[in-house]
Design a binder for these strands. Structure first.
Length: 415
DNA sequence: CGCTCCTGGCTATAAACCAT
DNA sequence: ATGGTTTATAGCCAGGAGCG
């Protein structure tokens, strides 16, 4: 039996030092996506960063001479069940700031192979800056004939709401001769941004988008129609974390979300949801999580009678009877899966679902109750700050509670 | 454990630069 | 001159290591 994959979620997050965050259940809950790209892990070689249910690729920056800690560093966590569909492309780049991988088109049911790059572009005045965009562009052109792209990460490039494509108007007609022949100039989707500033790296990014036919997802999709800020500090805020895809992949984007600020990092996590149509062998069906039960109601009888008049149900039962299942454990599993699928489909239509109540953790001590109270206050200001990034009084309160939360969180872990 | 030092990373702002 | 834009600098903050 197979279970289908109809969408895949990919997150990227500058975590500002991973430390022991990957041991924190709250943090793990935030990186529960199919693929999670973590930037600025500050981890060295052979880091101890295994987490349950996930495999990972990692890359580290060579440590500076006198430095006490590592800087940079990329870790990509992907769900173990996707192991066979994802390849780490070790040789595409020599840069320590980029990590390429490939999603197999047949595994995920995509039009073309998808090349994903987890990326960190240092600020231009940083000693680690080394013509990042030139390198990136040549890697893209090397791969461009082979499939589509998704770049996600911290670009340190501010583009405001300037166009990442050449608008189709007479002002730009003189540019057409330098554009690729197949350039689609009628693409007019507007993009918003809360950030009104553009910097030189931002221009580089826009140039790259135009020349490689890539489009920025920020400020364009359900989940981030405003172009939310992705970085907050005491001093200010900016949009520097982006998800960027091939233009032809835009129609496959379900959502793009900039998460609310969290106390784990000064950057916000960003998440891309892509449509796909893959099939996954259902090896361990036992582990399927069921968090509800079906309940018979007084309308159920009528609904079931109606449903049994439908043609499809006989077709499916017929299909079940006609199928030859091998006389093995595997065959038996397939048979039970198929028949129970039919029952479940029917149950969905006729009965009411009752969800199991989640067990509430008992708040046991002072630290715990203090932590939860602080966290809800913090979450409130986090949402407020996302909506009004320039409001000084909200910002001050946000950072005040953020600091408190961090201290209490540390205390909590000691217990 | 808490304090201090160091480094990287980032913004804002002032200063320099440019074309008119 | 002037007004907008680009570049360089100052300053702030947080995390990690070392030390007592």
């Amino acid at each position: 039996m197979f279970s289908s994959i109809d969408s895949i979620s990919i997150s990227s997050w500058n975590v500002h030092g991973l430390g022991q965050k990957h041991r924190d259940p709250d943090f793990l809950e935030l990186i529960n996506h199919d693929i999670n790209i973590l930037i600025e892990t500050w981890k060295g070689v052979e880091p101890d960063v295994q987490i349950p249910e996930y495999n990972y690729y990692c890359k580290q920056r060579t440590k500076a001479n006198k430095a006490k800690r590592n800087s940079g560093g990329i870790i990509v966590y992907y769900k173990k069940k996707f192991e066979k569909g994802i390849t780490y492309l070790k040789n595409v780049t020599k840069s320590q700031n980029r990590l390429w991988m490939k999603l197999d088109k047949s595994f995920f049911g995509l039009q073309d192979d998808l090349y994903i790059c987890g990326i960190y572009i240092p600020p231009k005045n940083s000693p680690h800056y080394n013509n990042e965009y030139e390198g990136l562009e040549s890697e893209i052109s090397f791969l461009s004939s082979k499939g589509n792209f998704l770049l996600m990460g911290d670009f340190n490039s501010r583009v405001s709401n300037y166009s990442d494509f050449v608008a189709n108007d007479e002002n730009n007609i003189n540019l057409t001769h330098i554009l690729p022949d197949n350039y689609k100039s009628d693409f007019q989707l507007t993009r918003k941004s809360q950030d009104k500033i553009i910097n030189p790296q931002g221009r580089d990014l826009l140039d790259l988008c135009v020349s490689a036919q890539l489009r920025i997802l920020n400020g364009r999709f359900i989940g981030d129609l405003l172009g939310n800020m992705t970085f907050f500090s005491m001093k200010g805020c900016s949009v520097v974390d982006y998800a960027i895809t091939s233009e032809s992949l835009l129609s496959s984007v379900n959502y793009f979300i900039v998460k609310t600020p969290s106390y784990f990092s000064d950057h916000n996590q960003i998440v891309t949801h892509l449509k796909c149509d893959g099939k996954l062998p259902n090896i361990n069906n036992i582990n399927k999580k069921i968090d509800f039960e079906f309940k018979w109601t007084n309308t159920s009888k009528l609904l079931l009678e109606n449903e049994l008049n439908e043609k499809y149900i006989y077709e499916e039962l017929n299909n079940f009877q006609q199928t030859n299942f091998e006389n093995t454990q595997d065959g038996l599993n397939r048979a039970t899966d198929l028949i129970s699928d039919i029952y479940i489909t029917l149950s969905h239509k006729c009965m009411r679902k009752r969800y199991f109540k989640k067990k509430r953790k008992r708040i046991s001590n002072w630290t715990d109750s203090n932590f939860f109270a602080l966290r809800s206050t913090f979450n409130l200001y986090s949402k407020k700050l996302k909506l009004s990034p320039f409001d000084q009084s909200i910002r001050l309160k946000y950072f005040f509670y953020s600091k408190q939360l961090k201290t209490v969180s540390k205390l909590k872990k000691r217990i």
